[in-house]
Design a protein around this nucleic acid. Structure first.
Length: 169
DNA sequence: CGTCCCTTCAAG
DNA sequence: CTTGAAGGGACG
């Protein structure tokens, strides 16, 4: 046990259909002939420290494209989400609240970082070096047609655009 | 409690 | 070497 994440257990989510979203991507370029990502999207296999070594070691969780897409989309419009929003997001994406919170935090830092490395260039050549090309905000770059037709599935943000702002704890 | 920030530590 | 999720401390 010992999961410190949401005490309410994962519960499989009360939403039956929200589990599968747009699982699809893949241009599969690069060296990966077959990417396993069948039914359940999400390849989050983590938190497994069993076997050898009881000393907790960190495990780099790698989120799936589906999860990243939703998270990114939200981040673009809102840097700060209310705790409730995060929780809903987490259960939709099948992540923990803590993970979502941490993810947002990391994105904010990343954002600040590129600003510091890009904007304050003081009008001087942009071509600094080949290296240091650090990623740019390559946000919405996936997808080619439509998506998010889940208006009927996700009652979360698909409601009115921006509605209340709950700042109360 | 959450956020900021650095740092750790694992994968590419 | 870089990316990126977490751990932990500091601050409100």
């Amino acid at each position: 046990m010992s999961s410190a994440e949401t005490p309410h257990a994962e519960t499989v989510s009360p939403l039956p259909s929200s589990v599968d979203l747009l699982v699809q991507d893949s241009p599969d370029s690069s060296t990966s002939p077959k990417m396993k990502l069948p039914p359940t999207s999400a390849e989050e296999r983590m938190g497994r420290k069993e076997d050898t070594a009881q000393g907790k070691k960190q495990i780099r969780t790698v989120f799936s494209q589906t999860q990243l897409y939703v998270l990114n989309d939200r981040f673009q419009r809102q840097k700060y989400l209310s705790p409730q929003l995060m929780q809903e997001l987490s259960n939709i994406l099948n992540l923990s609240y803590k993970q979502v919170k941490t993810w947002f935090q990391n994105q904010r830092m990343k954002c600040k970082r590129w600003q510091k490395n890009h904007w304050p260039k003081e009008s001087k050549s942009v071509t600094q070096n080949s290296t240091a090309a650090t990623e740019y905000p390559a946000f919405y770059s996936y997808h080619q047609g439509h998506l998010m037709n889940t208006s009927a599935n996700l009652p979360i943000w698909s409601n009115q655009t921006s509605n209340n702002l709950n700042w109360s704890n």
